[in-house]
């Protein structure tokens, strides 16, 4: 059950960075760590000790790992990359607008 433990540690690390750090780029990094933890857990949970789920020509494999969680994880990675890029772009704009990327020092957004 090491994968559960590692998942919890990684997830809590990312959540801590998301809650406690005031630097917005560090928040995005924390979000990505949480994502990576979930992907790691899904893949390690579905590992039943079989082969990689790709057929080989002229070779009969009796036991495969489940391909469905791997396909879902691939989807998740792509979505995560897109959202991270969009978040970083918004942070770039915010830096141009208010001169800081610290979320407690942002001023002038009320105007």
């Amino acid at each position: 059950m090491f994968n559960n433990l590692i998942f919890i540690i990684l997830f809590m690390l990312g959540f801590y960075a998301l809650v406690m750090k005031t630097n917005l780029i560090k928040n995005v990094i924390g979000l990505n760590i949480m994502e990576a933890a979930v992907f790691f857990w899904v893949i390690s949970f579905s590992d039943v000790g079989g082969e990689v789920s790709i057929h080989k020509l002229g070779e009969e494999v009796t036991k495969f790992n489940d391909p469905v969680p791997q396909a879902l994880t691939l989807t998740g990675i792509v979505i995560g990359a897109s959202t991270a890029a969009l978040l970083l772009t918004l942070i770039i704009e915010l830096n141009k607008f208010s001169g800081t990327i610290d979320r407690e020092k942002i001023e002038g957004l009320n105007d």
């Binding site: 789920s53 790709i54 020509l57 391909p67 469905v68 396909a71 989807t75």
Partner: peptide, 13 residues
Amino acid sequence: SLNLITAVLYDYR
């Protein structure tokens, strides 16, 4: 498709 993950991604889903 030999690669079952690709089969899931571009055929079933």
